[in-house]
Each structure stands twice: as C-alpha cells, then as structure tokens.
C-alpha cells in the first residue's frame, strides 16, 4: 500500500469512526461539524474535477453550490406552504423528498454549468477566471433581488427533508447519507481520472493542440468535466442547505467560491482525497481557532501560504510525497 493510499484509508476511517464515537459520547455538535466537513468536501471534490483533472481555475463554483441550495430551498418551501411551484402548463408541486431534491439540484446546477461552461471555455487563463467570477456574481445578485424566495434575507426551511427509511432529523443518519454521497463522488472522480476521458482531459491540460491532433476536442472534454464538476458541487449545495435548514445568497458569494478552492489547494489539487483532507482541516481550524478569535482566517491564510510555498502537493502531497496530482 502506498503512503497516499494509507493516508486516504486512515482519513476515511476517521470520517466513519469519529461521528460514531461522538454519538456514543452524546456529542451531536461534533457530528454536525463532521457533516459540514463532509458536505464541503463533496463541493470541493466537484471543483477538483474541473481544477485538478481539467486545470480549469473556476472562481464561480459558488453559483452551482447556491443553485443546489436554492433547488432544495424552493422545493422544500413550496412543500411547506402547500403552494405549487407552477400550475401551467403542468402542475409542479414542492417536495420534501431528498432523492428528488438531489436530482433537481444535480440537473439544475449541471445545466447552469453547461451554459456557463459553453461560454467561459471559449477563453482561458485569467479571462476564464474572470468570466466564471462574473457569472457567479450574476447569480449572486439575482438571488439577492429574488424577493419571492427571501431576497437578501434568504429562505428558512423549518423541517429537514426526508429520506425513505431514515430519520434524517437525527444527526448521525443525515451524516451517513452525506458520507455515502461523498464516497460515491470520490469513486466517480477516481473512475474519471483513470478513464480514457480523464487521461485525455489531463493531456488537454498539458498540450491542447496535441489532443486535437489525435482527434479529440479539448473544449468539449473540458465542458463535460465542467458540467460534472458543477453538478457535484450543486448536490453539495442541496445538502448544505439541508444541514443548515437555510439558504441565502451568501452560498453564491465569491468568497464561497474562494473557500471551495482553498479546500482543494489546502488538501492537494488533483489528489483523490485532497478535497477531503482540505475540508477536514478547514472545518477543524474554523472550529478551534474560530473559538479564540473571529479573525481566524489570518491563521488560515498563513497555513495556505506555507502550503503553496513549501508543500505544493497540499496536505496529501506533504504526507504522501509528490507525484499524484499536479501543482
């Protein structure tokens, strides 16, 4: 077993055992913290597909995170008020069913990623960063002005959505659901990275002209990656909104995009478990340092600076050595 695999296995074991121990010790807050870490990790796994595999520095992923969040918020609020979403041409009612909400979140954020990606991927480098940021801000200001769903104040949901056969109001079953979805996303990332599609995507990051010379369209490869990436981040958004039972424009802010990117860079760009390591460290620091000072981001900034300067493979690279991902 390589060091990276051992590290991944230990991290996964920690994610399974810590909440179980917290349950035994009757500390639900620890489970909620772990849930937050797992959901943020899921969002970052999404970004890692675009950033790690495709080399796409997107500063607009909060848009997908927020679209997923609002998909949950809108469906659940209509279910709560018994008012249908639409009556014409077909009757669409709200729902409190998690699987349906996840599906809508995935489809809505995937569609948004398709449109944003199709336009943004015409550019590259700093222009790509700026155009994704611009789209993110566009969605952000749209939600601020969307009075029907709370505008700037956001939207509260009073009851957590349901999953067949599980009591999702209890912290542990909800955590379990989030962890299963994170594992599914990690499995997908791994399969993608090793598939001919992932290899071609990695090659397109290195020498796009040569990928075209073997008959593959680099833009299409990137667009597919961007859509999958956006859809996963959207799913994370729906879970995040369910965790907090609240959705607001803050989920779509550019700071949120930066936060998701920090998770990936902190853990290791392109590494399978990089986003997970990044999210666990981030949430732990937020909890520990946040209790000492509200300016805890200063310490996070220093750590990030250290990682970027001295450990460019992120936490996973630091533990397991260079080679798996890319800088």
């Amino acid at each position: 077993m390589t060091r990276e695999r051992l590290f991944n296995a230990l991290l996964l074991a920690g994610l399974v055992l810590v909440p179980l121990a917290a349950q035994a010790a009757d500390e639900p807050f620890t489970i909620t913290l772990a849930t937050r870490a797992v959901i943020l990790a899921l969002a970052a796994v999404g970004l890692n597909i675009a950033l790690g595999l495709g080399g796409l520095v997107s500063l607009g992923h909060a848009a997908f995170f927020g679209i997923g969040g609002y998909a949950m918020g809108i469906l659940a609020s209509h279910a709560q008020s018994y008012a249908p979403l639409a009556e014409w041409p077909i009757l669409i009612e709200g729902t409190k069913s998690m699987p349906v909400i996840w599906l809508v979140a995935i489809l809505a954020s995937g569609l948004a990623a398709l449109v944003i990606g199709a336009l943004s991927l015409r550019t590259s480098g700093v222009y790509f960063i700026m155009i994704t940021l611009a789209f993110g801000q566009m969605f952000f200001f749209f939600t601020i002005s969307w009075a029907a769903y709370g505008g700037e104040d956001g939207l509260s949901i009073y009851v957590r959505n349901g999953f067949p056969g599980l009591n999702t109001l209890a912290p542990l079953p909800f955590y379990g659901l989030c962890l299963v979805l994170l594992c599914a996303a990690l499995w997908l990332f791994d399969r993608l990275a090793k598939s001919p599609f992932g290899l071609a995507l990695g090659a397109a990051r290195q020498v796009p002209a040569r990928v075209a010379a073997v008959g593959l369209d680099p833009t299409r490869l990137r667009l597919v990656a961007f859509v999958i990436s956006g859809a996963i981040t959207g799913l994370a958004g729906a879970l995040f909104a369910d965790l907090n039972r609240f959705v607001s424009p803050a989920m779509l802010s550019w700071q949120m995009s930066g936060e998701i990117m920090v998770l990936v860079i902190l853990g290791g760009v392109g590494r399978l478990f990089g986003p997970v390591a990044g999210a666990v460290v981030y949430v732990t620091l937020e909890h520990l340092l946040g209790g000492i000072t509200e300016f805890w981001h200063i310490f996070l900034g220093l750590i990030l600076l250290g990682i970027v300067l001295f450990a460019r493979g992120g936490i996973v690279g630091l533990v397991a050595g260079r080679g798996g991902g890319h800088d």
Binding site: A209, V211, A212, A213, V214, G215, L216, D217, P218
Partner: peptide
C-alpha cells in the same frame, strides 16, 4: 477545426 481533421483520418 483541428480535431475534426484528425477524426477524418489524419494522424
């Protein structure tokens, strides 16, 4: 575009 030329059979 370049990739379509390759798909036609130009290696």
């Amino acid at each position: 575009p370049s990739h379509r030329v390759a798909r036609l059979g130009v290696g």
